[in-house]
């Protein structure tokens, strides 16, 4: 079940990426090659195998709820492409 051009465009939209026309062709082919390779996993019977998301069994890492100094606002804003009055500026949304 190969990925179609439309699916590739849909995935690009979900990922907030714009693809050039020739890139759509290339990515469709390459993603299908990789997907076909990954299908290999279906050969294995994994019924009853607990999925492993992490290599170390860490559950919650709790700490005391103490106030400690954070990054000063000005420093946090220093790398912003656009800032105003201590805030990040983004293009109009509504």
């Amino acid at each position: 079940m190969a990925l179609t051009r439309e699916e590739v465009l849909h995935v690009a939209k979900l990922a907030r990426l714009n693809l050039e026309a020739e890139e759509v062709e290339l990515f469709t082919r390459q993603l299908n090659d990789i997907r076909a390779y990954v299908e290999k996993l279906q050969e294995l019977d994994t019924a009853g195998v607990k999925p492993m998301a992490h290599a170390v069994p860490v559950c919650n890492a709790f700490r005391d709820d103490e106030v400690t100094p954070g990054l000063p606002r000005d420093e946090a804003l220093d790398n912003a492409p656009s800032r105003e009055e201590g805030s990040f500026v983004v293009p109009r949304i509504i």
Binding site: L3, E7, V8, V11, A12, L14, A15, L17, F27, Q30, L31, I34, R35, V38, L41, Q42, L44, T46, V49, K50, P51, M52, A53
Partner: peptide
């Protein structure tokens, strides 16, 4: 961009179990 696309696809609705869950099991 290719890897972001692959990852987005593997986690997208309808494919999560077939890819991410399956891969996490094989990882175990």
């Amino acid at each position: 961009r290719r890897r972001i696309m692959l990852g987005t696809y593997a986690l997208s609705a309808g494919y999560y179990d077939a890819y991410y869950r399956k891969a996490s099991q094989v990882r175990a």
